[in-house]
């Protein structure tokens, strides 16, 4: 499939800021993400990634600044934003005590798919993931790698404009980790924008562009190749280390 040539912006953040009392978790963050782009959102622990992501998902109101997600205003249209995005994280993805098919139906229903759409989508998903014999099994009985691949597929079931992935491959074996990225590429080819955080620096290389957040601000934002050039190194690990080493809030 040919990658959609679409330069339209799906995330536009301008001086986005979140304060908790006198603590500035996210400090005037400005960036843009294009449709279909794989955008890596990296940062040290405590840098403000999670807070920023919550604002972008419409779950937390910014203190100041502006952002439009899939064309919707972050202050006035959080509900429309929630309908236009998908989300998965390592910690929360699927209901363990529901079966594979129940999870698909539950999330499909929440995202507003009709019964007919849901039937087509779930058949397709089960086929692609090779889960035909597992549909009636509880999610808790699946190996982690399968769970994560299923969780991702469920998060993009409603063909959202953007899918937010918070450390989706944490703890996953090296082969499954790569299969997971195959799914990411496929979704990106369909025009879905991928917004992903990871602690694996090899995965940073698979992104079109990455940002590195330190102490509430975006310290660097570019393609992996340009960042390595700028910091005169051939490893992303080293780029990250050079930027985050001086962080006051790390550790």
């Amino acid at each position: 499939m040919k990658k959609q040539v679409d330069k339209s912006l799906v995330i536009k953040a301008e001086k986005l800021t979140k304060r908790f009392g006198d603590f500035i978790a996210v400090n005037e963050v400005t960036f843009e993400v294009c449709a279909g782009e794989i955008f890596g959102f990296l940062g040290a622990n405590g840098a403000g990634k999670t807070t920023a992501m919550k604002m972008l998902c419409g779950l937390s109101t910014p203190t100041s600044g502006n952002a439009a997600i899939a064309g919707f205003d972050i202050y006035k249209q959080p509900e429309q934003i929630k309908k236009s995005i998908g989300y998965m994280s390592q910690k929360f993805s699927l209901y363990e005590d529901l079966t594979v098919i129940e999870n698909i139906q539950f999330f499909g229903g929440i995202y507003g798919l009709s019964d007919k759409q849901l039937k087509g989508k779930s058949d397709e998903l089960i086929e692609t993931l090779g889960l035909k014999n597992e549909t009636k099994k509880l999610v808790s009985s699946l190996p982690l790698g399968w769970k994560q691949k299923l969780a991702f597929s469920v998060a993009v079931l409603h063909e959202p404009k953007i899918v937010f992935l918070d450390e989706p491959t944490g703890g996953v074996d090296p082969v499954t980790r790569r299969q997971f990225w195959d799914l990411i590429y496929q979704a990106s080819d369909r025009g879905i924008t991928i917004f992903v955080t990871t602690h694996y620096m090899d995965e940073a290389e698979y992104c079109n562009r990455i940002s590195i957040m330190v102490d509430g601000v975006i310290k660097a934002l570019d393609t992996p190749i340009n960042l390595k050039k700028a910091y005169s190194t051939n490893s992303m690990d080293e780029v990250f280390y050079k930027l985050a080493r001086g962080a006051e809030r790390s550790g």
Binding site: G43, A44, N45, Q90, E167, G170, G171, H199, M201, D237, F240, Y241, A244, R245, A247, S250, G251
Partner: peptide
């Protein structure tokens, strides 16, 4: 070191 950033992992 699971879920810990590169800098803290090195330390």
């Amino acid at each position: 070191t699971t879920g810990v950033d590169v800098v803290s992992r090195k330390e």
